[in-house]
Design a protein around this nucleic acid. Structure first.
Lengths: 151, 151
DNA sequence: GCATAGCCTACTAAGTAAGTAGGAAAACTA
DNA sequence: TAGTTTTCCTACTTACTTAGTAGGCTATGC
Protein backbone atom coordinates (compact mmCIF):
# COMPACT_ATOMS: atom_id res chain seq x y z
CA UNK A 1 0.00 0.00 0.00
CA UNK A 2 2.66 2.35 -1.12
CA UNK A 3 2.57 5.17 -3.67
CA UNK A 4 5.93 5.04 -5.44
CA UNK A 5 8.04 8.04 -6.40
CA UNK A 6 7.26 7.29 -10.06
CA UNK A 7 3.50 7.66 -9.54
CA UNK A 8 3.81 10.73 -7.34
CA UNK A 9 6.18 12.43 -9.79
CA UNK A 10 4.01 11.47 -12.78
CA UNK A 11 0.95 13.03 -11.15
CA UNK A 12 2.84 16.21 -10.30
CA UNK A 13 4.29 16.51 -13.81
CA UNK A 14 0.82 16.21 -15.38
CA UNK A 15 -0.62 18.73 -12.91
CA UNK A 16 2.22 21.14 -13.69
CA UNK A 17 1.59 20.80 -17.43
CA UNK A 18 -2.15 21.34 -16.89
CA UNK A 19 -1.37 24.54 -15.00
CA UNK A 20 0.63 25.83 -17.96
CA UNK A 21 -1.97 25.14 -20.63
CA UNK A 22 -2.37 26.12 -23.42
CA UNK A 23 1.43 26.41 -23.42
CA UNK A 24 3.80 23.57 -22.54
CA UNK A 25 7.02 23.28 -20.58
CA UNK A 26 10.45 21.74 -20.93
CA UNK A 27 11.62 18.85 -18.79
CA UNK A 28 13.90 21.29 -16.95
CA UNK A 29 11.06 23.67 -16.15
CA UNK A 30 8.84 20.87 -14.82
CA UNK A 31 11.73 19.39 -12.83
CA UNK A 32 12.56 22.73 -11.25
CA UNK A 33 9.05 23.85 -10.37
CA UNK A 34 8.05 20.43 -8.98
CA UNK A 35 11.46 19.58 -7.51
CA UNK A 36 11.83 16.29 -9.35
CA UNK A 37 15.25 14.87 -10.39
CA UNK A 38 15.59 15.84 -14.06
CA UNK A 39 16.78 12.61 -15.64
CA UNK A 40 14.38 10.49 -13.60
CA UNK A 41 11.55 12.73 -14.76
CA UNK A 42 12.69 12.26 -18.36
CA UNK A 43 11.92 8.52 -18.16
CA UNK A 44 8.50 9.14 -16.61
CA UNK A 45 7.58 11.74 -19.24
CA UNK A 46 8.54 9.20 -21.91
CA UNK A 47 6.01 6.72 -20.48
CA UNK A 48 3.30 9.38 -20.32
CA UNK A 49 3.99 10.30 -23.93
CA UNK A 50 3.79 6.67 -25.11
CA UNK A 51 0.50 6.36 -23.20
CA UNK A 52 -0.89 9.30 -25.18
CA UNK A 53 -1.37 11.61 -22.19
CA UNK A 54 1.10 14.21 -23.41
CA UNK A 55 3.06 15.03 -26.54
CA UNK A 56 6.68 16.02 -26.92
CA UNK A 57 8.49 18.28 -29.34
CA UNK A 58 12.23 18.35 -29.82
CA UNK A 59 14.43 21.25 -30.71
CA UNK A 60 15.04 24.75 -29.55
CA UNK A 61 11.39 25.61 -28.85
CA UNK A 62 10.51 22.06 -27.83
CA UNK A 63 9.08 20.60 -24.64
CA UNK A 64 6.01 18.73 -23.44
CA UNK A 65 2.33 19.61 -23.64
CA UNK A 66 -0.82 17.87 -22.47
CA UNK A 67 -2.95 16.51 -25.30
CA UNK A 68 -6.03 15.46 -23.31
CA UNK A 69 -8.32 17.84 -21.44
CA UNK A 70 -7.34 17.88 -17.72
CA UNK A 71 -11.04 17.32 -16.95
CA UNK A 72 -10.79 13.95 -18.70
CA UNK A 73 -7.51 12.73 -17.15
CA UNK A 74 -8.02 10.98 -13.81
CA UNK A 75 -5.31 10.29 -11.25
CA UNK A 76 -6.00 6.59 -11.84
CA UNK A 77 -4.99 7.01 -15.50
CA UNK A 78 -1.68 8.58 -14.54
CA UNK A 79 -0.90 6.07 -11.79
CA UNK A 80 -1.61 3.12 -14.09
CA UNK A 81 0.93 4.49 -16.59
CA UNK A 82 3.60 5.08 -13.95
CA UNK A 83 3.04 2.10 -11.65
CA UNK A 84 0.75 -0.44 -13.32
CA UNK A 85 -2.60 -1.67 -11.98
CA UNK A 86 -4.02 0.27 -9.00
CA UNK A 87 -4.11 -2.71 -6.64
CA UNK A 88 -2.06 -5.86 -6.79
CA UNK A 89 -1.51 -8.66 -4.29
CA UNK A 90 1.95 -10.19 -4.58
CA UNK A 91 2.16 -8.72 -8.07
CA UNK A 92 -1.11 -10.27 -9.23
CA UNK A 93 -4.66 -8.96 -9.59
CA UNK A 94 -6.60 -9.95 -6.44
CA UNK A 95 -8.81 -12.47 -8.25
CA UNK A 96 -5.79 -14.48 -9.45
CA UNK A 97 -4.50 -15.21 -5.94
CA UNK A 98 -5.95 -18.40 -4.56
CA UNK A 99 -6.63 -18.90 -0.90
CA UNK A 100 -6.90 -22.36 0.64
CA UNK A 101 -9.90 -23.06 2.85
CA UNK A 102 -10.27 -20.75 5.81
CA UNK A 103 -8.70 -17.70 4.11
CA UNK A 104 -10.99 -17.78 1.06
CA UNK A 105 -12.82 -14.56 1.95
CA UNK A 106 -9.51 -12.65 2.04
CA UNK A 107 -9.63 -12.31 -1.76
CA UNK A 108 -12.91 -10.41 -1.38
CA UNK A 109 -11.28 -7.99 1.02
CA UNK A 110 -8.55 -7.20 -1.50
CA UNK A 111 -11.21 -6.67 -4.18
CA UNK A 112 -13.02 -4.26 -1.84
CA UNK A 113 -9.72 -2.44 -1.25
CA UNK A 114 -9.28 -2.05 -5.00
CA UNK A 115 -12.86 -0.79 -5.37
CA UNK A 116 -12.39 1.83 -2.68
CA UNK A 117 -9.12 2.99 -4.26
CA UNK A 118 -10.94 3.36 -7.58
CA UNK A 119 -13.67 5.39 -5.90
CA UNK A 120 -11.06 7.99 -4.99
CA UNK A 121 -8.61 7.83 -7.89
CA UNK A 122 -10.99 7.40 -10.83
CA UNK A 123 -13.22 10.18 -9.54
CA UNK A 124 -10.43 12.72 -9.09
CA UNK A 125 -9.27 14.48 -12.26
CA UNK A 126 -6.16 16.54 -12.85
CA UNK A 127 -8.44 19.59 -13.20
CA UNK A 128 -9.92 18.84 -9.74
CA UNK A 129 -6.47 18.82 -8.11
CA UNK A 130 -5.43 21.98 -9.90
CA UNK A 131 -8.62 23.80 -8.82
CA UNK A 132 -8.23 22.37 -5.28
CA UNK A 133 -11.85 21.30 -5.59
CA UNK A 134 -11.99 17.53 -5.07
CA UNK A 135 -15.03 15.32 -5.78
CA UNK A 136 -17.74 15.22 -3.13
CA UNK A 137 -16.88 11.70 -2.02
CA UNK A 138 -13.22 12.65 -1.54
CA UNK A 139 -14.03 15.88 0.30
CA UNK A 140 -16.31 13.97 2.67
CA UNK A 141 -13.44 11.60 3.53
CA UNK A 142 -11.26 14.64 4.27
CA UNK A 143 -13.96 16.25 6.40
CA UNK A 144 -13.63 13.49 9.00
CA UNK A 145 -11.01 14.54 11.56
CA UNK A 146 -9.60 11.02 12.07
CA UNK A 147 -8.60 10.90 8.40
CA UNK A 148 -5.77 13.23 9.42
CA UNK A 149 -4.48 11.05 12.27
CA UNK A 150 -1.05 9.72 11.39
CA UNK A 151 -1.09 6.12 12.68
CA UNK B 1 -0.64 0.38 -4.22
CA UNK B 2 0.65 -3.09 -3.79
CA UNK B 3 -0.08 -5.66 -1.09
CA UNK B 4 3.25 -7.40 -0.45
CA UNK B 5 3.69 -11.14 0.03
CA UNK B 6 4.61 -10.44 3.66
CA UNK B 7 1.25 -8.78 4.40
CA UNK B 8 -0.76 -11.36 2.49
CA UNK B 9 1.04 -14.26 4.21
CA UNK B 10 0.72 -12.62 7.64
CA UNK B 11 -3.03 -12.25 7.21
CA UNK B 12 -3.40 -15.85 6.07
CA UNK B 13 -1.29 -17.17 8.96
CA UNK B 14 -3.40 -15.30 11.52
CA UNK B 15 -6.62 -16.51 9.86
CA UNK B 16 -5.34 -20.08 9.91
CA UNK B 17 -4.47 -19.80 13.61
CA UNK B 18 -7.90 -18.34 14.33
CA UNK B 19 -9.50 -21.29 12.57
CA UNK B 20 -7.61 -23.69 14.82
CA UNK B 21 -8.49 -22.04 18.13
CA UNK B 22 -8.41 -22.93 20.96
CA UNK B 23 -5.52 -25.12 19.78
CA UNK B 24 -2.45 -23.79 17.95
CA UNK B 25 -0.36 -24.98 15.03
CA UNK B 26 3.29 -25.40 14.12
CA UNK B 27 5.00 -23.31 11.47
CA UNK B 28 5.01 -26.39 9.22
CA UNK B 29 1.28 -26.92 9.60
CA UNK B 30 0.48 -23.28 8.81
CA UNK B 31 2.90 -23.28 5.88
CA UNK B 32 1.39 -26.42 4.40
CA UNK B 33 -2.27 -25.52 4.81
CA UNK B 34 -1.77 -21.96 3.53
CA UNK B 35 0.92 -22.82 0.97
CA UNK B 36 3.46 -20.32 2.29
CA UNK B 37 7.25 -20.90 2.02
CA UNK B 38 8.23 -22.25 5.44
CA UNK B 39 11.31 -20.21 6.27
CA UNK B 40 9.79 -16.98 5.00
CA UNK B 41 6.74 -17.63 7.18
CA UNK B 42 9.04 -18.13 10.18
CA UNK B 43 10.27 -14.54 9.95
CA UNK B 44 6.72 -13.21 9.65
CA UNK B 45 5.49 -15.25 12.64
CA UNK B 46 8.39 -13.80 14.64
CA UNK B 47 7.18 -10.27 13.89
CA UNK B 48 3.60 -11.16 14.83
CA UNK B 49 4.84 -12.65 18.09
CA UNK B 50 6.89 -9.55 18.96
CA UNK B 51 3.81 -7.44 18.17
CA UNK B 52 1.84 -9.44 20.74
CA UNK B 53 -0.66 -10.90 18.27
CA UNK B 54 0.40 -14.50 18.86
CA UNK B 55 2.55 -16.50 21.23
CA UNK B 56 5.10 -19.19 20.50
CA UNK B 57 6.22 -22.30 22.35
CA UNK B 58 9.34 -24.26 21.52
CA UNK B 59 9.90 -27.97 21.82
CA UNK B 60 8.20 -31.17 20.83
CA UNK B 61 4.65 -29.98 21.54
CA UNK B 62 5.41 -26.37 20.58
CA UNK B 63 3.94 -24.10 17.94
CA UNK B 64 2.04 -20.84 17.65
CA UNK B 65 -1.29 -19.78 19.10
CA UNK B 66 -3.32 -16.56 18.87
CA UNK B 67 -3.44 -14.59 22.11
CA UNK B 68 -5.99 -11.95 21.13
CA UNK B 69 -9.62 -12.63 20.28
CA UNK B 70 -10.06 -12.80 16.47
CA UNK B 71 -12.97 -10.37 16.86
CA UNK B 72 -10.48 -7.76 18.13
CA UNK B 73 -7.75 -8.25 15.53
CA UNK B 74 -8.30 -6.17 12.38
CA UNK B 75 -6.60 -6.72 9.05
CA UNK B 76 -5.08 -3.26 9.49
CA UNK B 77 -3.34 -4.47 12.67
CA UNK B 78 -1.79 -7.42 10.85
CA UNK B 79 -0.75 -5.42 7.78
CA UNK B 80 0.91 -2.74 9.93
CA UNK B 81 3.02 -5.43 11.62
CA UNK B 82 4.03 -7.04 8.33
CA UNK B 83 4.38 -4.00 6.08
CA UNK B 84 4.37 -0.82 8.16
CA UNK B 85 1.89 2.07 7.80
CA UNK B 86 -1.15 1.39 5.60
CA UNK B 87 -0.45 4.17 3.12
CA UNK B 88 2.85 5.84 2.32
CA UNK B 89 3.95 8.19 -0.45
CA UNK B 90 7.60 7.73 -1.42
CA UNK B 91 8.13 6.03 1.95
CA UNK B 92 6.66 8.91 3.96
CA UNK B 93 3.25 9.55 5.52
CA UNK B 94 1.21 11.67 3.06
CA UNK B 95 1.28 14.79 5.26
CA UNK B 96 5.10 14.88 5.23
CA UNK B 97 5.41 15.16 1.46
CA UNK B 98 5.43 18.75 0.31
CA UNK B 99 4.00 19.86 -2.97
CA UNK B 100 5.05 23.09 -4.66
CA UNK B 101 2.30 25.40 -5.85
CA UNK B 102 -0.10 23.88 -8.32
CA UNK B 103 0.13 20.32 -6.94
CA UNK B 104 -0.67 21.28 -3.34
CA UNK B 105 -4.05 19.53 -3.31
CA UNK B 106 -2.42 16.22 -4.26
CA UNK B 107 -1.49 15.65 -0.61
CA UNK B 108 -5.20 15.71 0.24
CA UNK B 109 -5.89 13.03 -2.33
CA UNK B 110 -3.30 10.74 -0.72
CA UNK B 111 -4.86 11.41 2.68
CA UNK B 112 -8.27 10.49 1.26
CA UNK B 113 -6.76 7.31 -0.17
CA UNK B 114 -5.43 6.39 3.27
CA UNK B 115 -8.80 7.12 4.87
CA UNK B 116 -10.62 4.89 2.41
CA UNK B 117 -8.11 2.07 2.98
CA UNK B 118 -8.70 2.41 6.72
CA UNK B 119 -12.46 2.23 6.19
CA UNK B 120 -12.00 -1.25 4.75
CA UNK B 121 -9.05 -2.63 6.69
CA UNK B 122 -9.80 -1.32 10.18
CA UNK B 123 -13.41 -2.45 9.92
CA UNK B 124 -12.61 -5.99 8.84
CA UNK B 125 -11.58 -8.38 11.63
CA UNK B 126 -9.96 -11.80 11.39
CA UNK B 127 -13.23 -13.28 12.70
CA UNK B 128 -15.12 -11.57 9.83
CA UNK B 129 -12.87 -13.15 7.20
CA UNK B 130 -13.09 -16.57 8.84
CA UNK B 131 -16.89 -16.38 8.99
CA UNK B 132 -16.98 -15.05 5.40
CA UNK B 133 -19.23 -12.30 6.75
CA UNK B 134 -17.59 -8.96 5.97
CA UNK B 135 -18.66 -5.58 7.41
CA UNK B 136 -21.63 -3.87 5.76
CA UNK B 137 -19.47 -1.19 4.10
CA UNK B 138 -17.18 -3.83 2.58
CA UNK B 139 -20.06 -6.02 1.39
CA UNK B 140 -21.67 -3.02 -0.29
CA UNK B 141 -18.43 -2.37 -2.22
CA UNK B 142 -18.47 -6.02 -3.34
CA UNK B 143 -22.14 -5.83 -4.35
CA UNK B 144 -21.28 -3.41 -7.17
CA UNK B 145 -20.54 -5.42 -10.33
CA UNK B 146 -17.77 -3.08 -11.55
CA UNK B 147 -15.74 -3.83 -8.41
CA UNK B 148 -14.99 -7.16 -10.07
CA UNK B 149 -13.75 -5.70 -13.37
CA UNK B 150 -10.05 -6.38 -13.78
CA UNK B 151 -8.69 -3.20 -15.37
C1' DG C 1 25.78 25.44 -38.77
C1' DC C 2 24.87 26.00 -34.00
C1' DA C 3 22.33 25.85 -29.79
C1' DT C 4 18.49 23.71 -27.66
C1' DA C 5 15.86 19.93 -26.08
C1' DG C 6 13.93 15.42 -26.41
C1' DC C 7 15.29 10.29 -27.13
C1' DC C 8 17.76 6.14 -26.02
C1' DT C 9 20.97 2.97 -23.85
C1' DA C 10 23.75 1.83 -20.21
C1' DC C 11 25.64 2.21 -15.86
C1' DT C 12 26.05 2.85 -10.53
C1' DA C 13 24.62 2.52 -5.74
C1' DA C 14 21.44 1.95 -2.17
C1' DG C 15 17.37 -0.14 -0.50
C1' DT C 16 13.55 -3.48 -0.30
C1' DA C 17 11.18 -7.90 -1.33
C1' DA C 18 11.23 -12.67 -1.33
C1' DG C 19 13.25 -16.51 -0.08
C1' DT C 20 17.19 -19.83 1.66
C1' DA C 21 20.66 -22.07 4.89
C1' DG C 22 22.28 -23.56 9.02
C1' DG C 23 22.97 -23.74 13.67
C1' DA C 24 21.74 -22.45 18.74
C1' DA C 25 18.34 -22.78 22.35
C1' DA C 26 14.33 -24.55 24.55
C1' DA C 27 11.02 -28.15 25.72
C1' DC C 28 9.02 -32.50 25.75
C1' DT C 29 9.62 -37.86 25.61
C1' DA C 30 11.60 -42.27 26.15
C1' DT D 1 20.36 -38.28 30.03
C1' DA D 2 19.97 -38.63 25.11
C1' DG D 3 17.24 -37.74 21.21
C1' DT D 4 13.63 -35.42 18.81
C1' DT D 5 10.94 -31.58 17.79
C1' DT D 6 10.23 -26.90 17.10
C1' DT D 7 11.14 -22.10 17.69
C1' DC D 8 14.83 -18.44 17.44
C1' DC D 9 18.56 -15.93 15.32
C1' DT D 10 22.08 -14.42 12.00
C1' DA D 11 23.62 -14.29 7.56
C1' DC D 12 23.18 -14.88 2.80
C1' DT D 13 21.24 -14.84 -2.19
C1' DT D 14 18.58 -13.04 -6.03
C1' DA D 15 15.86 -9.88 -8.21
C1' DC D 16 13.61 -5.59 -8.59
C1' DT D 17 12.93 -0.60 -7.60
C1' DT D 18 14.51 3.98 -6.68
C1' DA D 19 17.39 7.63 -7.65
C1' DG D 20 20.63 9.43 -10.21
C1' DT D 21 24.57 9.92 -13.85
C1' DA D 22 26.87 9.80 -18.49
C1' DG D 23 26.95 10.23 -23.12
C1' DG D 24 25.69 9.98 -27.72
C1' DC D 25 21.85 10.50 -31.29
C1' DT D 26 18.09 13.02 -33.43
C1' DA D 27 15.01 16.61 -34.41
C1' DT D 28 13.99 21.64 -34.58
C1' DG D 29 14.35 26.65 -34.96
C1' DC D 30 17.19 30.76 -35.75
Amino acid sequence: MHVTARADYAARAVIELAARLPAGATRQEIARSQQIPGKFLEAILGDLRRAGILEAHRGATGGYRLVADPVRITLADVIRVAEGPLAAVRGMPPEDVDYPGSAAALANVWIAVRASLRDVLEATTIADVLAKQLPEHVESLLARPDSWARR
